[in-house]
């Protein structure tokens, strides 16, 4: 039997009214989730600032404090220092097209697979210089966070990434030109 228009209208009205009557419970569930989230975050080792401010999302304050930001000239000095390992956190395809001199690839999107090999060859106290694409790129900070959590003690990030390096007219290298770690 096909319901007539009035019947359909009444049913719709009742459904909407029933859904609206759930609003106080929905608000209670949402509020409870917020309280639990705030409490759990307060005791989590990767405690996040609720509002990010100047920080990138997903980066705890204590990690941000240990990620040293360097400009292109300081990065050049680090690149010239053989004790420093230069780490490219961009996708492997972009790394192959050109990277900072002596850089090795440890892409954010392949971190889980490539980190075991990286950890086996790079000592925890070796100074690291990380970089990614440009101003809006957060990949270097994300990889830096994972490395600091894994125990690396000296992690620097090139501010504004490879764009800052190019803007300073510093040289790039393609893979194979330098294979030393």
């Amino acid at each position: 039997m096909i319901p007539d228009r009035t019947d359909l209208l009444n049913r719709t009205r009742m459904t909407v009214r029933a859904a609206l009557s759930e609003l106080p419970r929905i608000a209670a569930i949402a509020a409870a989730a917020l309280v639990l989230a705030t409490a759990a975050n307060a005791v989590h080792p990767m405690r996040l600032p609720l509002l990010t401010g100047q920080l990138q999302p997903g980066i705890p304050r204590w990690v941000a404090a240990r990620l040293r930001q360097v400009d292109a000239q300081e990065a050049k000095r680090l690149v010239d220092d053989p004790k420093v390992l230069v780490v490219d956190t961009r996708d492997a395809r972009d790394f192959r097209q050109g990277h900072l001199p002596r850089a090795v690839s440890l892409p954010y999107h392949g971190f889980g697979e490539q980190y075991p090999e990286f950890a086996a060859t790079v000592p925890k106290d070796r100074p690291l210089l990380l970089y990614c694409y440009g101003s809006d790129c957060g990949l270097a900070a994300r990889v830096g966070k994972r490395l600091i959590a894994a125990g690396y003690t000296d992690v620097a990030i090139l501010r504004h990434g490879i764009e800052a390096w190019k803007a300073a007219n510093l040289p790039l290298e393609t893979p194979g030109e330098h294979n030393e770690q």
Binding site: M46, L48, L51, T52, P57
Partner: peptide, 24 residues
């Protein structure tokens, strides 16, 4: 939760300022 906040950032839907609290 920090890694989930990164994933939410990549969606580029929410303002970055509220991504952490939204992820949590």
């Amino acid at each position: 939760p920090d890694q989930f906040a990164e994933v939410m950032t990549d969606y580029e839907i929410l303002p970055k300022a509220v991504v952490n609290v939204a992820a949590l």
